[in-house]
Design a binder for these strands. Sequence first.
DNA 1: CGACGCCTTGATAAATGTCAAACGTCGTGG
DNA 2: CCACGACGTTTGACATTTATCAAGGCGTCG
Lengths: 189, 189
Amino acid sequence: VSFARNAAIYEEDDPAECIYQVVSGAVRTCRTLVDGRRQIGAFYLPGEVFGLAGGARHAFSAEAVTDAKVLVFCCDVKLALEPSDNDVAPRMWTLMAGELERAQDHVYLLIKTAPERVASFLLELARRIEASEEVELPMSRRDIADYLGLTIETVSRMLTQLEKASAIALPTSRRIVLRDRAVLERLIA
Amino acid sequence: VSFARNAAIYEEDDPAECIYQVVSGAVRTCRTLVDGRRQIGAFYLPGEVFGLAGGARHAFSAEAVTDAKVLVFCCDVKLALEPSDNDVAPRMWTLMAGELERAQDHVYLLIKTAPERVASFLLELARRIEASEEVELPMSRRDIADYLGLTIETVSRMLTQLEKASAIALPTSRRIVLRDRAVLERLIA
DNA sequence: CGACGCCTTGATAAATGTCAAACGTCGTGG
DNA sequence: CCACGACGTTTGACATTTATCAAGGCGTCG
């Protein structure tokens, strides 16, 4: 199924009936707070699976960051966990464990300082994209800021700062070249 | 099994072979960063279950916050997930889902401001302790600070601030009376 | 060309951290 | 029983970090 940029894939509190795999593009999960602040729970890149919910309803909504294609597996999660379907259950467990680890790493991110958060974000993205040195950012500064718990101005400043330190280069605002991983890795503590 | 205050129940990277249920006292999961900063993943109160790990090894270590008694269920997680043991698997799933939700709530906490984090922490604790208005804190200011991603000084200041606003009272430093939940709930946004 | 969205930069304000000192509590030992 | 010391907590003065507000630049698409 295809989704246009910023289109909702599912909404917060929707019944959790399907799981999804990104084919192309990128997806974010988020929730909006009463006062307008927005929390981004995670970004999902091609090949990654999202939409798992522990309970009956989604805790986050999911939106296309860019135009995106996703595979939709509509299966009641409870059915998949039945012993009869003993091939699927372990895979669900693995996916769930991955989500938990991701959330824990996110917590780990948020206790750090601003430069550390940005550096960690870049390294993590580069790792997942399997790009040796050049990363194409699918998401806007606002998305990054809401994921890192910073403002867009701070994210922008940290990037310029990293550029001045020759750790990265910014040919365009959405394209980032990792010039010196050692500097980034030293930053993330 | 009994553990003395600050005793390790298991260490980070230990093989994940058992799960645990708190009988009395309190337990924290944490990891220490290279530069000495400490992240607390969660606190567990009597009745709550901890020690679930998605993978083969623990991502956090677990320590007794106070003298504590815990039930230890030594069972290979993989075994418990076998279809043959079809009574345990759904329960494990529920516990895992609870952990995921807890981690997501923790992320939600960390994107807030200091007064919001402290207020949320107090309300959450009161809810889990099922105390109508008086909460006995098992953990030190340092534990709270490391959980909330703040310094002990900031935690202390936020508490005095809440006390001055008549939202809480502090008969002793480890005992907190919720005087005005409305003030606290307004704070957490 | 012009308008709009997105990003960057600067000046300033607010929040939080750091350092230092004082206070209280509690347990220990005289 | 009291005095002392260790530890945890609170408070204050100050430094640093990050947010806020405002302006300007840059690219894209009509």
